[in-house]
Design a protein around this nucleic acid. Structure first.
Lengths: 352, 352
DNA sequence: ATTTGGCACTCAGTGATGCTGAGTGCTAAA
DNA sequence: TTTAGCACTCAGCATCACTGAGTGCCAAAT
C-alpha cells in the first residue's frame, strides 16, 4: 500500500482525531484541528478515495469517517510517530514493578499491574516457555507418610514443585534414593525428552520393589510435565467497562466472557508469537494484532500489543496489552516496551 | 419481627415472584399466580402495611412492589422453603469438583468453578486459615549458588514454599545445617508464635558466621510468614454482566471494579466469618449478607452466601457465592451447601 | 371490623412527529 | 486539480400524547 503524501497525512489525521475524540471525524473538523492548506471539499475527495481503498469507513451516510481495521494497520505500519513516556510515567511504572519482589512471578504480576494501570486497558503476561530448558535437579521431600513434595529445578533457575501421593510405607531413605537416581541419570536432559520410559530406566536396579517404584515414577513424571505448563496473568478486565467502545453491554459481556477463558487467550498469544517468529519479525520489538485479525469471539473491536521478555539467555515469555482497537498505539507501544525493558532488567538483577 | 400468617404468605409470594420475573409485582398479578382466597383490594391493604413495616417498597408511585433489604432478610430468616438439587445438578457439580485433582488448591479451584457455573453468579473460595496450625518441617534446598528453596510443612499436611536469595558462598551443607537446627527447635510451634527472635535463637551456636546467618534467617522468616497468607479464588465475574440487575453499565463497572480488589473481598469474607463466630452462629451452616449489609462499594445490590469447609480436624476456610440480592436464596444455599459437602468429602479422601 | 367493588389518579414506557446540525456527494466555476 | 456552493441525508434530541398496569381511598357488603 503506497499512498501519496497528502493521503498519508489525511489518514494519519483521521486516526489521531478519532482516537482522541472517539467521534467520527468529518472534513470540516479535520481542517480546523490540523493545518491543511486545502479546502474541506478537497479533503472530502481525498476521503472518498481513502474509503475506496478500504482504509476508512462511514458508520452511516451523514456521519464522518472512522478508520477501518486496514486503516489502523496502515497507521501502525507506516504512519504513526513514536511516543516518549514522560519521566513521571516511567517512574510510576518502575515503582510498581519493583515493589516487594521475591521471585520472577512477582515481577510478572507487578508488570501486568503496572501495564494495566498505566494504559487503562487489560494487560497480560505469560510465564516463560520452558521448551529449551533442561533438568538440573530433582528432589523429593517426605511430607508425611504417603505424601511427598517433588521439586523440579530447571536450567535458568526455574523452580517448580508439586505435592504427590506415594505408597504409604515408603521410607524417607527410599524416596531420596529414587530421586537422586533420577537426578543423576537425567541431569541436563531437555524437558521434552523426558518420558515415562526414560524416567523408568533411570532407576533400573534400585532396591525399591518395582510396583512401588512405578507409582512414584509416574507422579514424578506428572510433576515434571506440569512444570512445562504456561501460566497466564490477566489484569484489569473491569477497566474495559469504562471505555466508550464497550458501552453496549452486549459487547462488554462477550469480551469479558472470552477473556475469562485463560486457555483461549494464552493460546492466541502463543499463536501471535509463533507467526511473528515465522515472519522473521522477531526483531526484539512489539507485535500487533488489530480487530478482525484476532480470531477470538468478542475481541473484534480489540487490539493486542505484545512483546517478548527474557529470562536468562535461553528463556522468553510474552507480555502485553489488550485494548480497544482505537487506542493510542504509539503510546501503548512505548508503555509496553518500557515495561519489557524494566522487566528484563529486574529479572536479570534478581538472578545475579 | 412477627407477622400474621397472611402477611407472611404475601411477602413470601412477592419475593418469589420478583426473583423469578425480575419485575415489580402488583396486587393483581399476585392473585393470578398464587391461590389467594381474598381480593386484590385486600392484598393492596396488606401490601400497604408491609410497606409501612419497611419490608417492601415501590420503585415509583404507579408500579408494583419489590422487596427491601429488610424484606429479603425476613425472607431468608423465616419464610423460604428449602430447595433440593436434582440429581443432574448434583452430578454436574460433583463431576466438576473431582476433575483432575492433585492438591487441595485444585479442589478449591474446581469448586469455585462448579459453583459459579451452576449458580450463574460469582463464586469465591479462600485457602484455609492456618492460625491454629504449627510447624512440622522446615527444609531448605540449594537451587544454585545464592538461591535456595524454603519448604514449610505445617500440621494438617499443608505445604508452602518460596524461593529465596542467600549469600552466594553458603554451601549446601551449611544451609541444611541451619534448616535442620530450625526445624528441631521449632517443631510443633504454632505459626503465630514464630518470630524473628525465636527463629534466631533456634540457631544459636551454629558454626555459620552470624552475619550470613541473619540473612538466611530473615528469608526463612519471610517464607514462614508468607505461608500464613490467605489466597482468594474468584470466578465468573463476567457472569454478572448477563444479569438484568447490572444492565446499567455504571453499576456493572463499580461492581467489577471492587471485585478486582482481591484484598477487599477477602477481608470482607473474613469479617462475615468472624461476626458469625461471635454470634455463635457457627452451626456448620451458611452465612448470608444482603445488600446494604455489605460495606463494599458497588455491592449494594448484591448478596453474599458463604459457608465453611474443613481441612483435617483443625483448619477451615470459606467458600461461597456473590450474586444479585434478588437471587433465589434457597436454591443458592443448597448449591453452596452441596459444594461444601462435596468439597469436605474430597479433601478427606485426598488426605487418606 | 374486615373485605370488596368501584373509581379517580399516577406515571414509566412506547411510539409518532418534527427540528437541528454536522456531515455527505456532486456540479460548475476558478 | 481545486474550490465554492448547494441539495440532500440522517442520528440524536426534544416534544407530545396514549396506554396500561399499578396505586390509594371510599362507601357498600359481609
Amino acid at each position: 500500500m503506497s499512498l501519496d503524501d497528502r493521503k498519508k497525512k489525511v489518514l494519519q489525521a483521521i486516526v489521531d482525531d478519532y482516537v482522541s475524540t472517539y467521534e467520527p471525524v468529518g472534513s470540516k473538523s479535520l481542517i480546523e484541528r490540523h493545518n491543511f492548506t486545502v479546502s474541506s471539499a478537497t479533503l472530502r475527495n481525498e476521503m472518498a478515495e481513502l474509503e475506496k481503498l478500504g482504509l476508512i469507513e462511514k458508520p452511516h451516510t451523514s456521519a464522518g469517517r472512522i478508520p477501518s481495521d486496514k486503516g489502523y494497520r496502515e497507521y501502525v505500519d507506516s504512519l504513526m510517530h513514536p511516543d516518549i513516556l514522560t519521566l513521571e510515567e516511567q517512574e510510576e511504572i518502575s515503582f510498581r514493578i519493583t515493589d516487594s519482589v521475591h521471585e520472577v512471578t512477582d515481577l510478572l504480576k507487578n508488570a501486568t499491574n503496572a501495564l494495566s494501570e498505566s494504559t487503562g486497558f487489560v494487560s497480560l503476561a505469560m510465564t516463560p516457555k520452558l521448551n529449551g530448558s533442561f533438568l538440573t535437579q530433582l528432589k523429593m521431600l517426605m511430607i508425611e507418610p504417603g505424601k511427598a513434595l517433588v521439586v523440579v529445578v530447571l536450567s535458568a533457575g526455574v523452580v517448580k514443585d508439586k505435592v504427590v501421593r506415594i505408597p504409604n510405607f515408603l521410607t524417607n531413605e527410599q524416596i531420596m534414593q529414587i530421586s537422586s537416581a533420577v537426578e543423576k541419570n537425567l541431569y541436563g536432559k531437555p524437558l521434552d525428552e523426558i518420558t515415562l520410559i526414560t524416567l523408568a530406566s533411570s532407576v533400573k536396579g534400585s532396591e525399591v520393589p518395582e510396583s512401588l517404584m512405578n507409582q512414584v515414577i509416574y507422579e514424578a513424571y506428572v510433576a515434571i510435565k506440569q512444570a512445562d505448563k504456561l501460566d497466564l496473568y490477566l489484569e484489569g478486565e473491569h477497566r474495559m467497562l469504562s471505555l466508550p467502545d464497550f458501552s453496549e453491554l452486549g459487547r462488554a459481556r462477550d469480551l469479558l466472557g472470552t477473556l475469562s477463558h485463560d486457555g483461549m487467550v494464552a493460546g492466541y498469544v502463543n499463536e501471535i508469537e509463533k507467526s511473528a517468529e515465522n515472519m522473521g519479525d522477531k526483531n526484539d520489538s512489539y507485535m500487533i494484532r488489530i480487530g478482525q485479525e484476532i480470531a477470538l469471539e468478542g475481541l473484534e473491536d480489540c487490539s493486542f500489543v505484545t512483546t517478548t521478555y527474557n529470562v536468562g539467555d535461553t528463556l522468553s515469555g510474552n507480555i502485553g496489552v489488550i485494548g480497544p482497537k482505537r487506542m493510542d498505539y504509539s503510546k501503548v507501544i512505548s508503555q509496553v516496551n518500557f515495561v519489557r525493558k524494566k522487566l528484563n532488567d529486574e529479572i536479570k538483577r534478581l538472578s545475579e
